[in-house]
Nucleic acid binder design. Structure first.
Lengths: 190, 190
DNA sequence: GCTCCCCTGTTGCTTAACCAACACCGGTGC
DNA sequence: GCACCGGTGTTGGTTAAGCAACAGGGGAGC
């Protein structure tokens, strides 16, 4: 029924295993040496997977990063029970909160300025947010492209801002403050 | 050089993975439902491997238990840095201690009387102990069979006794007491 | 007796992972 | 310049894991 019915469910067990092992190795190496220094060879060695097998699953480490970000973000979405089909203020608030926490956690784990790394994460994450918003809006609006785009950038921008603050306010108060700014152009006045 | 140079080292990574997954599932299920109640299907489901693949590695769950016991025991041996080629009082003392701890841990984890389970464990463990002792004695004695056998049974018996005691003395004092009884027929007087 | 159910081993065929080897690129040293 | 080194993608042939289907055993219920 749903478009992505947990794609990893009816997959060949070998494929599931392999992807999982690669992802685990990726997370470990990301903390140890950072994205730039980490090589496909490292990933293969750490995960116990053949290098050729890696390439059967991902084009390169950049594609892996993309996949990892989307997967992790998607997992947060379902963990929070965020409804992916209907909009509503609560969904939007949750989304802002999730993005903030996501970037914050990333900040903590992979500290330091890594422009290319950040850019890749941003790209993947924005696409995911955008797709989510489009799913919400498409129900009622014939053309949701523009409001979705604006809200996407707004949310991502706010989250980056929050995660870079020296003295961060409590996340809930930040979200409460941010929500109306995002919702303004997103949800029809009610 | 050594007879078993860590056999899992130069093995096909797929085989290593599969065996590891089966062993992990086995340990988990052993605690959850016990050896008798656990089926090959359970093992396959829990470990994520195909049932047919299980049979490619082990004849049945009994063979798996045998393998698991030997593997775990062997791991203890190397962890304690027990020299497998030369004898000596310190080695013998360590061996007694290891067997006691091994049975004790098993007792704690898989409590309750399981005659067939216990018999299988005993068989595997005794063979391992015997092989170890033979390795030590063969260096000096042309025919070490009998003293090795006596010592094997003695050690196993002492360890079972210890693990079944209601009020157990400290392991070190027990070993100190047991050692001379075992060593009597094993090491040449010096 | 009977059927039903669950588990056991085993089979042939398919698919994914392994492996060694290759050509290639970018940097380093000299 | 050139040689070296370490990493990258890619290849074809080999091997292990997956899968569905089978016959058969043994116990529970009736």
């Amino acid at each position: 029924m749903s478009p992505k019915p947990d794609a990893s469910a009816d997959l060949d067990p070998r494929v599931r295993r392999t992807r999982l092992l690669i992802l685990e190795a990726f997370h470990a190496l990301l903390e140890e040496k950072g994205f730039k220094a980490l090589s496909v060879q490292d990933l293969a060695a750490r995960s116990g997977i053949n290098r050729a097998t890696f390439y059967a699953h991902f084009a390169d480490k950049y594609a892996l990063l993309d996949h990892a970000v989307r997967t992790a973000f998607g997992a947060e979405i379902v963990k929070r029970g965020l409804d992916t089909h209907t909009d509503g203020p609560e969904n939007v608030r949750s989304l802002i909160l999730i993005v903030c926490e996501f970037l914050l956690a990333l900040e903590r784990r992979c500290a330091g300025p890594h422009p290319e790394f950040d850019a890749l994460v941003e790209g993947a994450l924005r696409q995911e947010i955008h797709a989510l918003l489009m799913g919400w809006l498409a129900v009622r609006r014939p053309s949701a492209e523009l409001p979705a785009t604006v809200a996407t950038w707004a949310i991502y921008g706010l989250a980056t801002h929050y995660s870079h603050l020296k003295r961060r306010p409590a996340l809930e108060t930040f979200v409460a403050e941010a929500y109306p700014l995002v919702a303004a152009g997103l949800l029809p006045a009610r």
